[in-house]
Structure formats: structure tokens, C-alpha cells
């Protein structure tokens, strides 16, 4: 592997890993607080899937980097500007409607992404794609069903779901953002073209929104910046909680 492609791959792998870690952490915040027992099982289980994927990706990033860092160093010991997750995944849970819609937006993107990664020229990512895609299909179903139930539910649930759409939709453009490093990976056949993925994402969202009687808004001002490490204010609080233990007790082990 040439140095250029290795660096581009490292950069991209960390971005994808960050998306999974941060969304997984947000989901885990619901543990013990879900509106019913079933959801109290579902959300931490989905968080496990996402954090498991993040672990695999961070381990791979550490290997690509070759500086003796571990998955934990990537997850716990970076500053806010070094995290390159998209802003969507770090948005606060707010209420159950926001949480489920956020999950749907992300899963509807990752499903076609992992499908396309079955043809990646990178063996590690290709292997991971076969595992991750099965799990993400569940996430689409689970969150999609809730978006329909709430959107086409009572006046209260419908109002909350509409508010979630207004709040979160402007963050979805960033899912399809690329930079020079990512483009290099796409050219090399390591990462997939995003055009087809965006089409599939739109189809999934339209199908769910039609059933949910929700209106898909036009994005006037896309919210972006996470890929450059420019985060929303809520990210600081998230990171403080995520990193508390390894920062307070450096080197702590089980």
C-alpha cells in the first residue's frame, strides 16, 4: 500500500469510526431511561453494534498508523478538534422522536454504504461490511417503524416528530460530504461513490416519511463542519462524559 493511499485510508477510517462511536454513545445515554422496557433493551443493543463497529475500525486505524496506538487511544484520548464525526450523530437525544429520527437518517445512509463496501478493494473493510450490514438493516427497521408510529400517531407524537425533522434534517447533507482524502479512496476503489448511496438514502427516507405522513423539508442552510473537527456546543459535554474515566485514571484497566 502506498503512503498516500494509506494516509487517505487512515483519515477516512477514523471519520467512519467516529460516526459510530459518537452515535453509539448517544444511544447508550438512554440505558435505564427508555420509555419502556423493550426500548431499554433495543437502544443499548444498537449502541453495542455501533461501538463494536467503531472498535474494529479504530483497531484498523491504529494498524494503518503504525504508531503503537490502540483502539482506546483513538476513542478516549483525543481532543474535540481531532474527532471528525458528522454533526448529526452528536446532536443531543432531546426526546424519543429526535433519537429515532437521527438513527433512521444514519442507518439509511450506512446500509447502502456497507452494501457497496462488499466491493471495496480493501480486504479489512470488505470483511467488516459483511458483518455490519446485517446489523444496520435491523436499525433501519426499528427506527423506521418508530418514525411511522410517531409521525402518524397522536397530535402530540406527530408534533414532536415534525419538530425533530425540522431540527435534524439540515444535518443530513454532511453524510454525503467528501474531502480530498476521501476522494482519493473513492478513486482507488477503497470507498464507494456516494451518488448511488444518496439515491438509496433518499428512497428510504421518502418511503418512511410517506407512511409517517411527514413532509421532507428542503435544506436551506446545511449544517456542516464535523469532518473538519468543528463541532456543536453539545459535543464538549458528550466528550467530557465519554472520556471521564481514562482522563481521571490514566492507564486504568479491568
Amino acid at each position: 500500500m502506498s503512503i498516500t493511499i494509506r494516509n487517505a485510508l487512515l483519515h477516512s477510517v477514523v471519520q467512519i469510526a467516529d460516526d459510530h462511536l459518537i452515535l453509539g454513545h448517544r444511544l447508550s445515554e438512554w440505558c435505564g431511561h427508555a420509555p419502556m422496557l423493550e426500548e431499554d433493551l433495543s437502544m443499548p443493543n444498537m449502541a453495542l453494534d455501533l461501538i463494536g463497529t467503531a472498535r474494529t475500525l479504530y483497531s484498523y486505524a491504529a494498524e494503518l498508523e503504525g504508531k503503537n496506538r490502540t483502539e482506546d487511544d483513538f476513542a478516549y484520548l483525543r481532543t474535540d478538534r481531532e474527532y471528525q464525526n458528522c454533526l448529526l450523530v452528536e446532536r443531543p437525544n432531546t426526546d424519543f422522536a429526535h433519537t429515532m429520527l437521527k438513527q433512521l437518517y444514519f442507518s439509511a445512509f450506512m446500509k447502502p454504504f456497507w452494501d457497496a463496501m462488499h466491493h471495496s478493494s480493501d480486504a479489512t473493510l470488505q470483511a467488516l461490511s459483511h458483518k455490519a450490514v446485517k446489523e444496520i438493516a435491523y436499525h433501519i427497521r426499528h427506527s423506521g417503524e418508530w418514525v411511522v408510529r410517531l409521525g402518524d400517531g397522536t397530535d402530540e407524537s406527530s408534533a414532536r416528530m415534525s419538530a425533530a425533522v425540522s431540527a435534524l434534517h439540515p444535518y443530513t447533507d454532511e453524510l454525503f460530504e467528501t474531502d480530498a482524502q476521501r476522494l482519493h479512496c473513492i478513486e482507488q476503489g477503497v470507498l464507494p461513490e456516494l451518488g448511488e448511496i444518496k439515491l438509496q438514502w433518499s428512497q428510504t427516507i421518502d418511503t418512511v416519511f410517506t407512511q409517517a405522513k411527514l413532509h421532507r423539508p428542503n435544506i436551506g442552510f446545511p449544517q456542516t463542519g464535523g469532518r473538519q473537527g468543528l463541532h456543536t456546543e453539545d459535543f464538549g459535554m458528550l466528550l467530557a462524559q465519554l472520556q471521564y474515566l481514562p482522563r481521571s485514571y490514566p492507564g486504568a484497566t479491568w
Binding site: 443493543n45 453495542l48 453494534d49 463494536g52 458483518k131
Partner: peptide, 8 residues
């Protein structure tokens, strides 16, 4: 081989 990727 792991069953699920997030399998604890």
C-alpha cells in the same frame, strides 16, 4: 469468528 460485531 465473532457472531455479532458488538457481541459482548
Amino acid at each position: 469468528t465473532p457472531t455479532y460485531i458488538g457481541c459482548p
